[in-house]
């Protein structure tokens, strides 16, 4: 079917729904979902191995960035990519602080036009904070320590990025 504006409406084949049974023997009911969530929770040790690898990678990228302050673009992109992955994984394994820190680091890098020394210090600060979160196994929101870390980070961030 096509209208006067050249828009054709097509009924898509229902290949997916033909494969799915409502209430079948493998139905994903609330109990099945709970079991699936428990499987992910059981991967926490794997996550800690993965994130340790990511921390080594992001530190390496940051070292490269420090060594190439005059041409930082490619190295900022590298730090951004690793932080973006860390952001995406943290919350899946109940490390919400890692998601928050990864997200904020990405947003900060996006805001950089010409990288300054204080900008670099902020990046280092975020990476060091992520290391603390993992080394101290600060899962969830990190409780009181988590709040202190975020507010301390915020204070230093404001100091470093103050434009006067």
């Amino acid at each position: 079917m096509s209208d006067d504006n050249g828009v054709r409406v097509i009924k898509a084949p229902d290949t997916l729904s033909r494969k799915v049974i409502k209430g079948g023997p493998g139905a994903v009911d609330p109990a099945a979902l709970e079991r699936a969530e428990a499987v992910i929770a059981g991967m926490a040790d794997s996550y800690l191995d993965w994130v340790e690898e990511d921390l080594v990678k992001i530190q390496g990228a940051c070292d490269e960035l420090k060594a190439n302050k005059d041409k930082p673009k490619a190295f900022l992109d590298k730090v951004f990519g690793i932080a973006h992955d860390m952001k995406g994984q943290g919350g899946s394994f109940n490390y919400d602080l890692m998601t928050i820190l990864g997200n904020d680091l990405c947003r900060f890098i996006e805001s950089i036009d010409d990288m300054t020394d204080p900008d670099l210090e902020v990046i280092v600060l975020y990476i060091d904070t992520m290391k603390i979160v993992i080394s101290q196994r600060m899962s969830g929101d990190g409780g009181e320590e988590g709040r202190k870390i975020l507010s301390g980070l915020d204070l230093v961030f404001k100091k470093l990025t103050r434009k006067d």
């Binding site: 997916l16 494969k19 799915v20 049974i21 409502k22 209430g23 079948g24 023997p25 493998g26 139905a27 994903v28 009911d29 609330p30 979902l33």
Partner: peptide
Amino acid sequence: MSDFDIVTTKV
């Protein structure tokens, strides 16, 4: 959440 059985779905 609906109780769908997605066992035979190829992803």
